[in-house]
Design a binder for these strands. Structure first.
Length: 895
RNA sequence: GGGCGAUUAGCUCAGUUGGUUUAGAGCACCUCGUUUACACCGAGGGGGUCGGGGGUUCGAGUCCCUCAUCGCCCACCA
């Protein structure tokens, strides 16, 4: 570093806003984030969990992408060919809902538009709002390979989705069938089971009586959905329920609609629940449907797609389901059929997207058979080929995978990948699956036996595929993996996936399934599950609650580095992050601390001197050796933490290394002795060399400030940027425990002197006379040869160190690591305080020794515990008693 | 209803296979302090019977049982 090149007026407050944009542009301009196939380098790949294309950045993204960036940046520094692929998801339902809403605001109804017209609007919307979120990620510092930005509706990507559908269909893993599905009456589409959220709600249990045919008697059923009475086609009792045995084979009248339906017996009914008598509505309840199948009951589809009553319902036609619920209760009451209403808590399914109550509905949909496909996906997580962090999520995963149900993949929407099925007739099997209409025509002519069939006779399925049916190909398709083997063979499998546990089934599990099906290999080696970002009251941050801070606002306030650090500091994998802006404040304070430490060095440079940072420390300087040892210990610790995906622990180590070790001790000791003196050039070079090491370790976490200082320290060529610098390697030669121990002894001595000053009310400037009586001659020698450290950090008149020192009269004292510290305080001493200090210390040690003695006096302990443990206790006793004796001696002087 | 996980200082969390501390960190709190960077700072300090109870062991925050509270996931009792 050249002093002339530095600005003398470096401000004492670090301003990230100036720095961050500058370096992000620099990194981009120099293409550091871009990766290409390079067989001489090992790849490190992460694919981003693609956010909704028209979404905006929220706190969950911030946390998630910060973690990905940390992993990517470190890998890049380690020399891997780091490739973090960004992109967005078309988010079928969510995006379509937004477009529909926007159109409605403009007075346009979706139903007034053709499919193509609607899609035009949707694309327009996508182009307008699409990708904003990716721009926001750049503010965070995300080092994605932006040249690889993918979108699930890109042409090639879409091809892979359609081809996959066709392939699975041809393998018999996709089928079309009429089943009970979850109907979203607001979005007008079927949903998969995963998209239904069960919430406990306060409902009512209505007891309704049904007249038995040819009898004056009644049966009473209990229901939470009285409107479905319109669709009843049976009443069911338990075959062993003696209360109802006489009714088997009889018939009852459904009230209001006056339809005669059979009484059937099935052990599905819980005798204890309600009245023990169940009404059966096969078209509108999953269980009832099964009962209907079993007992060959009629199905009455009494509800329309929008949740209103259909003509088949006979009554209340066109009324909304919840209106009908109120009305039918009134009408039943008037008809004398309502027996009672009970308060009742039950779970009701809601749409994940639209938050309306799901209506179970019988419908013809497309399905993926999951059982067989999911086998390898289950095995390879359970045997840790794919590792979950934290591992506890394996349980949840297993439970789902072992009970996996077929996946409903068709959605009655327009925005998405249109199902490549073409119908040529009304029959159940009158369709073909093909990529193009030409291929479809060819197959259809064969299948139908009609060679004259024309394109115009074919109708493509109106539905699109579930968004997740495209996302599950993400780790393959972003590399064009179905059509171009070179890229995918190099980058796949990816290394780490960072995502929220909420989408373990939607996405993670299915990517694993697709990975084994199409690559015969796992899609990623590690899955890091982040926690949920919550507000102070523990609520999940959400748009609707309005409790989420604006991420960009936070970045402008605390700097991206500050926000990143704040979030990382308090979120171990899988733990929720209770967010409070104070954690970002801690981050920006840290930035400022680093900034000032660096500023201080620049202030101590001589004009015109060329400084060259070095790691060649002064081997005679204990502080240098100690600092170097601490750096290497930290490198080792961080590497271990990364291996275990404990990013917060790694960051804490860096934080403590920089703040506690480097700033509070190393810099203090490196300061020139005399006011106004500049740093010695060699000292400065070493300090700068250490600073460089620190910046490297910091870079993955706080990329901007570390790059800023890195570039300040020396003029660098583009290829010398910190962003692509090499990650420090642990070197045991630097990690000398004896140096650390000795230095820590000195730190303890200084702390004890500070403590004496604080308790005696002695100013830090007051020059003390210090006597240190060491436990051994050897110790004295070591301390004497490093006594400059003591002198530097404590103003003192004199210091005397020896194993043979007589305790002076009136003095304050302490025992540190077996050595006695005396500070003669003639006249200054507050006798009572000093006695109290010593007495407190005696009490503490006595209490401690009590525990030690208890163990040693226990014959069982001495006989059974390992020798090392027993010996250790004996050492504790010996040292403790020695200290106690010294303290008692000191106390005597005051008596 | 089933399963999983938690419960350690006011808050957020560490605490590796049970034994170097009568339990650690950061934030918050209290006292003092404008010393050659930083008051977004420095120095010092207080604060926990490790959710309750029982057990195994020479020894338990750490293992087992049980209860309580909280959280998450799954599930078709209307």
């Amino acid at each position: 570093m050249n002093k002339d090149s530095t600005n003398k007026e470096i401000p004492s407050k670090y301003d990230p806003s100036i720095v961050e944009d500058k370096w992000y542009s620099y990194w981009m301009d120099n293409n550091y984030f871009h990766s290409e196939v390079d067989h001489s380098k090992e790849p490190f790949t992460i694919v981003i969990p693609p956010p909704n294309v028209t979404g905006v950045l929220h706190m969950g993204h911030m946390l998630n992408n910060t973690i990905q960036d940390v992993l990517t940046r470190r890998a890049r520094m380690q020399g891997f060919n780091a490739c973090w692929v960004p992109g967005t998801d078309h988010a079928s339902i969510a995006t379509e809902a937004k477009v529909v809403r926007k159109l409605r605001e403009e007075g346009i109804k979706k139903s007034d538009l053709s499919r193509d017209e609607f899609l035009e609007h949707a694309w327009e919307w996508t182009h307008k709002h699409g990708g904003i979120i990716l721009e926001q990620l750049k503010k965070l510092g995300a080092s994605c390979d932006w040249d690889r930005t993918s979108f699930t509706m890109d042409e090639k990507y879409s091809d892979s989705v359609i081809d996959t559908f066709i392939d699975l269909y041809n393998k018999g893993k996709i089928y079309r069938g009429e089943r009970m599905i979850n109907w979203d009456p607001a979005a007008f589409t079927a949903l998969s089971d995963e998209e239904v959220i069960h919430k406990e709600v306060n409902s009512k249990l209505y007891h309704v009586r049904y007249q038995i045919s040819d009898s004056k008697d009644f049966v009473i059923i209990a229901t939470t959905r009285p409107e479905t009475i319109l669709g009843d086609t049976a009443v069911c009792v338990h075959p062993k329920d003696e209360r109802f045995t006489h009714l088997h084979g009889m018939k009852v009248m459904v009230p209001l609609v006056n339809r005669e339906v059979p009484i059937i017996a099935d052990d599905y009914v819980e005798m204890e629940f309600g009245t023990g008598c169940l009404k059966v509505t096969p078209a509108h309840d999953v269980n009832d449907y099964e009962l209907g199948q079993k007992h060959k009951l009629e199905t009455i589809n009494m509800m329309n797609a929008d949740g209103t009553i259909s003509e088949e319902g006979e009554l209340y036609i066109g009324m909304d389901r919840f209106e009908v619920r109120k009305q039918i209760v009134k009408d039943l009451e008037e008809a004398g059929n309502l027996v009672k209403i009970e308060e009742y808590k039950n779970k009701v399914g809601y749409s994940e997207r639209t938050d309306v109550v799901i209506e179970p509905r019988l419908s013809l949909q497309w399905w993926v058979s999951m059982k067989e496909l999911s086998q390898p996906a289950l095995e390879n997580v359970m045997n840790d080929n794919i590792q979950f962090h934290p591992a506890k999520f394996k349980n949840t995963y297993r439970h789902w995978m072992e009970n996996v149900k077929d996946w409903c993949i068709s959605r009655q929407l327009w925005w998405g990948h249109r199902i490549p099925a073409f119908y040529f007739g009304e029959g159940e099997h009158d369709f073909v699956v093909a990529k193009t209409i030409e291929e479809a025509l060819e197959s259809a002519r064969i299948k139908s036996g009609n060679p004259l069939l024309q394109k115009s006779d074919l109708e493509q399925d109106e539905d699109v595929l579930d968004t997740w049916f495209s996302s599950w190909l993400w780790p393959i398709s972003v590399f064009d993996g179905f059509y171009n083997k070179e890229e995918v063979d190099y980058y796949y499998p990816t290394n780490d996936l960072v995502t929220a546990p909420e989408i373990m089934f939607f996405w993670v599990a299915r990517m694993i399934i697709a990975g084994y099906e199409y690559r015969d290999e796992l899609p990623f080696k590690n899955v890091y599950y982040t926690g949920i970002v919550r507000d102070k009251q523990g609520r999940k941050m959400s748009k609707s609650l309005g409790n989420s801070p604006d991420p960009l606002e936070l970045i402008s306030q605390y700097g991206a580095d500050g926000v990143r650090m704040g979030m990382l500091f308090s979120t171990p994998a899988g733990n929720d992050l209770p967010f409070d802006s104070s954690i970002c404040e801690q981050g920006s304070k840290f930035s400022n601390k680093i900034w000032n430490a660096f500023r201080f060095l620049t202030m101590n440079m001589e004009e015109g001197v060329k400084y060259i940072p070095t790691t060649k420390i002064d081997s005679n300087n204990l502080a240098d050796r100690w600092m170097m040892a601490r750096i290497h210990q930290t490198i080792q610790g961080i590497d271990e933490d990364f291996k275990n995906y404990k990013l917060n622990d790694a960051l804490k180590k860096v934080y403590s290394l920089i703040w506690d070790d480097f700033c509070d001790w190393y810099i203090e000791l490196a300061k020139p002795d005399k006011y106004g003196d500049k740093f010695d050039i060699n000292k400065m070079n070493v300090a700068l060399g250490m600073f460089e090491q620190l910046m490297k370790l910091l870079h993955p976490f706080m990329p901007f400030i570390s790059e800023e200082i890195w570039q300040y320290i020396q003029d660098r060529k583009p290829e010398e940027a910190l962003c692509i610098a090499d990650w420090p390697k642990y070197d045991a030669n630097f990690d000398v425990q004896a140096d650390i121990d000795l230095f820590e002894n000195l730190q303890d001595i200084i702390s004890s002197l500070r403590n004496i000053r604080a308790e005696m009310g002695i100013s830090p400037k007051e020059e003390l006379e210090v006597l240190i009586k060491t436990s051994a001659n050897e110790t004295a020698d070591k301390i004497i040869s490093n006594d400059w450290i003591l002198k530097k950090l404590q103003s003192m008149k004199s210091i005397e160190i020896s194993s043979d020192i007589k305790k002076p009269g009136a003095c304050s004292s302490a025992i540190v690591d077996g050595n006695e510290i005396y500070v003669p305080l003639e006249g200054l001493i507050d006798t009572e305080k000093e006695i109290e200090r010593i007495q407190n210390e005696i009490n503490r040690i006595e209490g401690w020794l009590k525990g030690v003695n208890r163990k040693l006096n226990n014959k069982n302990f001495v006989d059974n515990a390992p020798d090392a443990v027993v010996q250790n206790e004996r050492n504790k006793l010996r040292d403790g008693e020695a200290n106690l004796a010294k303290l008692r001696e000191q106390l005597k002087d005051f008596e």
